[in-house]
Amino acid sequence: MSHSAELKPLFYNFAALMVLLAITIGMSYVDLGAFNLFVALLIAGIKTFLVALIFMNLRSTSNVSRLAAVGGLLWLGFALILTAADYHSRGWNEAQAHDLIEVEQARP
C-alpha cells in the first residue's frame, strides 16, 4: 500500500477542479442568456460535490455527517425557495393594483 497510490484520488480531484474552473471561465464568455447563471451554478455545484466527497472525505465518513452536510444545503434551499416565492409572485396582481390607483384618481 504505497502512499502515492493512496494520494492519487486527491490529485485527480485537484485536476478535475482546475478543469472545471477553466470551463466556468470559458462559459461565461458564451452568451446563453439566463442559462449562464444555471451553467455557472451547476459547475460550482459539481466542484462543491468533488471537494466535499474527496477532500472533505464525505465518501468515507459517517452517515450522520453526510446528513449534516445535506441538511445545511436543504435548509438553505428552503430559505431560497420560499423567499423566491414571494418575490416572484409579487408582480402577479400588479394589474389590479394599477386599477385601484386609477379608481382612486378618478374619484371627484
Binding site: F78, L82, A85, D86, H88, S89, R90, W92, N93
Partner: peptide
C-alpha cells in the same frame, strides 16, 4: 416550522400568493 415564516408578513406587502402558501 422552517416553512411557515411568511405568516408573520401577511400584511407587510409580501405577495398574497406567497401568503397563501405560508
Amino acid at each position: 416550522g422552517f416553512l411557515v415564516w411568511g405568516h408573520h408578513m401577511f400584511v407587510s406587502g409580501q405577495s398574497v400568493y406567497a401568503g397563501l402558501i405560508f
